Amino acid sequence: MLTLIIDADVLRYMLAFQNTKKISFDDDDEGPIEIINPSKAKAALEDYVEELMDKFKADDFLLPLSVSTNFRKDLYPLYKANRAGKVRPELWYHVDGWIKELWADKVIEREYLEGDDIIGLLATNPNAKRAPGKKIMVSIDKDMRTLVGRLYNPNKPELGTMTISQHDADLYWMLQTLTGDTTDNYPGCPSIGPKKADAALLPVHEKFLDADPADHLAALWAAVVDVYESKGLTQEDAILQARLARILRHGDYDFKNYKVNLWHP
């Protein structure tokens, strides 16, 4: 049994932008108008899923979607605040409707969780009822590299299906904790970009590569806290950024009480 866990959030935006043109008129003070191609977008949506199923000879697929609520905004109100006021393209709503109309039984949404979190919970749960057996995450989102499992990036087919180990997933998560993410509007550690983050964590990662995953993560975390403290910040500051950067994994969500189990070092 092989189930594809397809990032449907990406689909909504990708197909909307690919099939929308904006035209401006010199004498129009109201700004550009959108010219959309719904029939082409719907055909592309169906082809996208069909081609993936054929490529991997998969038995099933799931389509996690984000909702308007988000637990990270309760932790850090500025999370994704940079997107406030931005108008979605009209075609986004069409694609959203088609996904739910064509594959209602494949769509998974849950209050306060992002689609990424649902992907993570499914992909890392060895006994997931909705995704039994083997699983492949399908996404172009770099954040998927923080999850243990198999990942296929449709925008980089030459990479094939990558297998992400526990050590690699934790390394990327800790790197994100240091650098933050401008797309999601959380800052990470001040003045720490990818090069400085690599310099702080890659030697630790390599030193503990053969260690137990818990020891490997503990060593990475100690290095992360050292960097935060060198900038006059505290471990609590680092914990907040780690929680924002962490895509939920198996055990991070209480399904009975609909509650996120926040990570603690």
Results as ranks from 00 to 15, higher is better:
L4I: 02
R12H: 14
Y13I: 02
A16V: 00
K21F: 06
K22I: 02
D28M: 11
I33Q: 15
E34G: 02
N37L: 06
P38I: 05
V49A: 13
D74E: 13
P77M: 12
P77N: 06
Y79N: 06
K80E: 03
A81R: 09
E90T: 00
L91N: 03
W98D: 10
I99A: 04
E109Q: 13
E109Y: 02
R110F: 12
G115F: 06
G115Y: 14
D116K: 07
I118R: 06
G120C: 02
P126V: 00
A128Q: 03
K129Y: 00
R130D: 07
I140C: 09
D141V: 03
D143M: 08
L147I: 10
N153A: 04
P154I: 11
P154Y: 15
K156E: 05
G160E: 03
T163M: 06
I164M: 05
Q166T: 05
L175K: 15
Q176W: 09
T177N: 04
T179M: 13
T183G: 08
Y186E: 02
P187K: 10
P190D: 05
I192G: 09
D198T: 05
V204R: 01
E206Q: 15
D210M: 04
A211Y: 13
A218S: 06
A219Y: 01
D237C: 03
L240A: 05
L240N: 07
A242E: 13
I247K: 08
L248G: 06
R249D: 04
D254C: 02
N257Y: 09
L262G: 03
L262F: 02
W263Q: 06
